[in-house]
Design a protein around this nucleic acid. Structure first.
Length: 255
DNA sequence: CGGCATGTTGCGCA
DNA sequence: TTGCGCAACATGCC
């Protein structure tokens, strides 16, 4: 489930597994996911040291000695650890074997749907540098939210999911945070009141923490079920091409 | 078989 | 030029 909280969980695992290690072998056979010759992926990584594993929004950034690896999990991507001699896992698209002291760690990139990306670069790429503030790494207050949303005509939900506005908010986090903040997802972003922006900043924080704690969703994917707050059946609409669940009573349009 | 899916990009049309 | 809706990408699951 790769939105900000899930990507952060993957980052922590990766950092623990391979941070500070030296890559002894990196292989991919998937030209679609590597967006270039998978051979170049292996060549660029072989022998490099993993200085650190960072995250911004939904992107992971591996800082190597002289290169940078950008990894996006798309819809179904994940990094898992396997025994170095284990056969390729189901939907495995790449593997990176890392030596840390005495031990050899093998991490595998799995991604059935292959919307994810594994990019090698010499420096930062536009997809990374053009990201908006990350509400977890950078913190988020009502003032920042106001700057980011000001004069936007798109709905608040679509604005939240725009990675240039805020980095890391996807369909689940947006849906859950708007429910917590009691804001109609269709409301134009630029028309939120300051108290709504305060509630939304807080709700994003709570939603991200709930995601990190792997708690169940309140309303996402629960269209037709009773609203957890008032019991009225949750509405299900499409906004910006994405399924959107909300409560017409608890999330009013009016200010 | 049809419909839907946690993401992103690019195209056609106002 | 800008903005918006929508299809496409590739695959699995219900």
């Amino acid at each position: 489930m790769p939105e900000l909280p899930d990507v952060e969980i993957v980052r922590r695992r990766l950092s623990r597994w391979i941070g500070g290690g030296v890559i002894v072998a990196a292989r991919s056979r998937d030209a679609y996911v590597t967006r270039k010759s998978p051979v170049a992926f292996g060549r660029a990584l072989d022998g490099a040291r993993v200085v650190r594993v960072e995250r911004r929004g939904k992107w992971l950034r591996w800082a190597l000695d002289e290169r940078v690896v950008f990894a996006h999990l798309g819809m179904t991507g994940d990094w898992v650890r396997a025994a170095p001699d284990a056969k390729p896992l189901a939907a495995e698209r790449a593997r990176v074997d890392v030596r840390r002291g005495e031990s050899l760690v093998s991490v595998r990139y799995t991604d059935p749907r292959r919307f994810g990306r594994l990019l090698v670069a010499r420096g930062d790429i536009a997809e990374w540098t053009e990201l908006g503030p990350d509400p977890y790494a950078d913190g988020l207050d009502a003032r920042t939210l106001e700057e980011r949303l000001d004069a936007r005509r798109a709905s608040i939900k679509e604005a939240l999911m725009d990675q240039h506005v805020l980095a890391g908010v996807g369909n689940i986090v947006a849906t859950e945070a708007l429910f917590r903040a009691r804001i109609d997802p269709r409301k134009p972003a630029g028309t939120l009141t300051s108290s709504e922006r305060r509630a939304l900043a807080r709700a994003l924080h709570v939603t991200i923490e709930a995601g990190l704690a792997r708690r169940d969703f309140l309303v996402y994917g629960r269209g037709g079920e009773p609203c957890p707050r008032c019991g009225r059946p949750l509405a299900k609409i499409v906004l910006g091409g994405r399924g959107t669940t909300f409560c017409v009573r608890c999330q009013p349009r009016g200010a």
